[in-house]
Amino acid sequence: MGVNKLKTISLKVNGVTKEIAVEDNELLLNTLRDKLGITSVKAACWRGECGLCTVLLDGIPVKSCMTLSVEADGKEVITAEGLYSDERAKKLMESFVKHGALQCGFCTPAFVVTSHYVLSKNPEIDGEELKKELNGVICRCGTYYQIYDAVKDAEKYYKKEKSY
Protein backbone atom coordinates (compact mmCIF):
# COMPACT_ATOMS: atom_id res chain seq x y z
CA MET A 1 0.00 0.00 0.00
CA GLY A 2 3.00 2.27 0.16
CA VAL A 3 1.85 3.70 3.46
CA ASN A 4 5.30 4.37 4.79
CA LYS A 5 6.68 6.12 1.73
CA LEU A 6 7.64 9.73 2.23
CA LYS A 7 6.33 12.31 -0.16
CA THR A 8 8.30 15.38 -1.10
CA ILE A 9 6.27 18.54 -0.85
CA SER A 10 7.24 22.01 -1.89
CA LEU A 11 6.39 24.61 0.70
CA LYS A 12 7.18 28.30 0.64
CA VAL A 13 7.73 29.10 4.29
CA ASN A 14 8.16 32.74 5.27
CA GLY A 15 9.45 33.60 1.82
CA VAL A 16 11.79 30.65 1.33
CA THR A 17 10.74 27.70 -0.81
CA LYS A 18 11.66 24.35 0.67
CA GLU A 19 11.40 20.75 -0.44
CA ILE A 20 10.39 18.68 2.55
CA ALA A 21 9.88 14.93 2.90
CA VAL A 22 6.66 14.25 4.77
CA GLU A 23 4.40 11.34 5.57
CA ASP A 24 0.80 11.30 4.41
CA ASN A 25 -0.45 11.42 7.99
CA GLU A 26 1.83 14.25 9.09
CA LEU A 27 0.26 17.42 10.47
CA LEU A 28 1.47 20.78 9.20
CA LEU A 29 1.99 21.69 12.85
CA ASN A 30 4.60 18.90 13.20
CA THR A 31 6.32 19.76 9.95
CA LEU A 32 6.67 23.40 10.96
CA ARG A 33 7.77 22.82 14.54
CA ASP A 34 9.72 19.57 14.40
CA LYS A 35 11.22 19.68 10.92
CA LEU A 36 11.63 23.40 10.33
CA GLY A 37 12.08 24.58 13.92
CA ILE A 38 9.41 27.27 13.66
CA THR A 39 8.46 27.53 17.30
CA SER A 40 6.14 30.53 17.20
CA VAL A 41 3.54 28.01 16.06
CA LYS A 42 2.35 26.60 19.37
CA ALA A 43 0.91 23.17 20.01
CA ALA A 44 -1.68 23.04 22.74
CA CYS A 45 -5.04 21.34 22.24
CA TRP A 46 -4.29 19.43 19.00
CA ARG A 47 -8.00 19.42 18.17
CA GLY A 48 -8.84 22.72 16.57
CA GLU A 49 -10.13 24.45 19.66
CA CYS A 50 -7.46 26.86 20.89
CA GLY A 51 -6.08 28.35 17.69
CA LEU A 52 -2.52 28.65 19.04
CA CYS A 53 -1.21 26.73 16.02
CA THR A 54 -2.69 29.25 13.54
CA VAL A 55 -0.65 30.07 10.43
CA LEU A 56 -1.50 31.78 7.16
CA LEU A 57 -1.83 29.25 4.34
CA ASP A 58 -1.92 31.07 1.02
CA GLY A 59 -2.89 34.12 3.05
CA ILE A 60 -5.81 32.52 4.91
CA PRO A 61 -5.66 31.68 8.63
CA VAL A 62 -5.81 27.95 9.29
CA LYS A 63 -5.18 25.80 12.32
CA SER A 64 -2.06 23.80 11.51
CA CYS A 65 -3.04 20.97 13.87
CA MET A 66 -6.05 20.40 11.61
CA THR A 67 -4.11 20.62 8.34
CA LEU A 68 -2.20 17.82 6.61
CA SER A 69 1.26 18.72 5.36
CA VAL A 70 0.57 16.98 2.03
CA GLU A 71 -2.44 19.22 1.66
CA ALA A 72 -0.18 22.29 1.81
CA ASP A 73 1.98 21.10 -1.08
CA GLY A 74 2.74 23.99 -3.43
CA LYS A 75 1.36 26.55 -1.01
CA GLU A 76 2.79 29.41 0.99
CA VAL A 77 2.93 29.40 4.79
CA ILE A 78 3.45 32.54 6.82
CA THR A 79 4.09 32.46 10.56
CA ALA A 80 4.85 35.22 13.04
CA GLU A 81 8.56 34.87 12.18
CA GLY A 82 7.77 35.71 8.57
CA LEU A 83 5.96 38.89 9.54
CA TYR A 84 9.13 40.65 10.72
CA SER A 85 9.82 41.61 7.12
CA ASP A 86 6.43 43.36 6.88
CA GLU A 87 6.63 46.93 8.13
CA ARG A 88 2.95 47.05 9.03
CA ALA A 89 3.09 43.79 10.95
CA LYS A 90 6.14 45.02 12.83
CA LYS A 91 4.13 48.02 13.98
CA LEU A 92 1.31 45.68 14.93
CA MET A 93 3.68 43.67 17.11
CA GLU A 94 4.99 46.87 18.72
CA SER A 95 1.40 47.79 19.41
CA PHE A 96 0.94 44.51 21.32
CA VAL A 97 3.89 45.51 23.52
CA LYS A 98 2.66 49.08 23.95
CA HIS A 99 -0.77 47.92 25.09
CA GLY A 100 0.50 45.10 27.27
CA ALA A 101 -1.54 42.74 25.13
CA LEU A 102 0.03 39.63 26.61
CA GLN A 103 0.85 38.08 29.91
CA CYS A 104 2.62 34.75 29.36
CA GLY A 105 2.82 35.41 25.61
CA PHE A 106 1.94 31.87 24.55
CA CYS A 107 -0.99 33.02 22.41
CA THR A 108 0.73 36.11 21.00
CA PRO A 109 2.07 34.68 17.71
CA ALA A 110 -1.37 33.29 16.84
CA PHE A 111 -3.07 36.60 17.64
CA VAL A 112 -0.47 38.53 15.64
CA VAL A 113 -0.86 36.29 12.61
CA THR A 114 -4.67 36.37 12.78
CA SER A 115 -4.93 40.11 13.36
CA HIS A 116 -2.44 40.76 10.56
CA TYR A 117 -4.84 38.88 8.28
CA VAL A 118 -7.83 40.81 9.63
CA LEU A 119 -6.25 44.25 9.28
CA SER A 120 -4.84 43.49 5.82
CA LYS A 121 -8.39 42.69 4.75
CA ASN A 122 -10.10 45.53 6.56
CA PRO A 123 -8.13 48.24 8.39
CA GLU A 124 -11.32 49.98 9.49
CA ILE A 125 -12.96 47.12 11.26
CA ASP A 126 -15.74 47.71 13.73
CA GLY A 127 -14.92 46.74 17.33
CA GLU A 128 -17.56 43.99 17.55
CA GLU A 129 -16.52 42.61 14.17
CA LEU A 130 -12.92 42.49 15.35
CA LYS A 131 -13.87 40.42 18.38
CA LYS A 132 -15.65 37.98 16.10
CA GLU A 133 -12.72 37.83 13.68
CA LEU A 134 -10.36 36.92 16.49
CA ASN A 135 -12.61 34.37 18.20
CA GLY A 136 -10.63 31.42 16.85
CA VAL A 137 -7.75 32.05 19.23
CA ILE A 138 -7.91 31.58 22.98
CA CYS A 139 -5.82 33.59 25.45
CA ARG A 140 -5.66 31.67 28.70
CA CYS A 141 -4.32 34.74 30.50
CA GLY A 142 -7.39 36.69 29.44
CA THR A 143 -5.69 39.66 27.81
CA TYR A 144 -8.46 40.02 25.21
CA TYR A 145 -9.25 43.68 25.79
CA GLN A 146 -5.60 44.69 25.56
CA ILE A 147 -5.38 42.66 22.33
CA TYR A 148 -8.42 44.42 20.84
CA ASP A 149 -6.89 47.79 21.79
CA ALA A 150 -3.53 46.85 20.30
CA VAL A 151 -5.10 45.77 17.03
CA LYS A 152 -7.37 48.83 16.80
CA ASP A 153 -4.37 51.05 17.46
CA ALA A 154 -2.38 49.39 14.67
CA GLU A 155 -5.14 49.96 12.09
CA LYS A 156 -3.48 53.14 10.86
CA TYR A 157 -0.45 51.25 9.61
CA TYR A 158 -2.64 49.09 7.41
CA LYS A 159 -4.48 51.91 5.69
CA LYS A 160 -3.36 52.55 2.13
CA GLU A 161 -2.28 56.15 2.56
CA LYS A 162 0.42 55.97 5.19
CA SER A 163 -0.72 58.54 7.69
CA TYR A 164 1.69 57.73 10.49
Binding site: M1, G2, V3, N4, D24, N25, L27
Partner: peptide
Amino acid sequence: PYFTLPKFVYLK
Protein backbone atom coordinates in the same frame (compact mmCIF):
# COMPACT_ATOMS: atom_id res chain seq x y z
CA PRO B 1 -2.55 8.75 19.55
CA TYR B 2 -4.66 11.86 20.04
CA PHE B 3 -1.77 14.06 18.91
CA THR B 4 -1.06 12.06 15.79
CA LEU B 5 -2.99 10.54 12.94
CA PRO B 6 -3.05 6.84 12.12
CA LYS B 7 -1.34 5.87 8.86
CA PHE B 8 -3.29 6.26 5.64
CA VAL B 9 -2.74 6.91 1.96
CA TYR B 10 -3.61 10.44 0.89
CA LEU B 11 -5.34 10.87 -2.46
CA LYS B 12 -6.12 14.18 -4.08
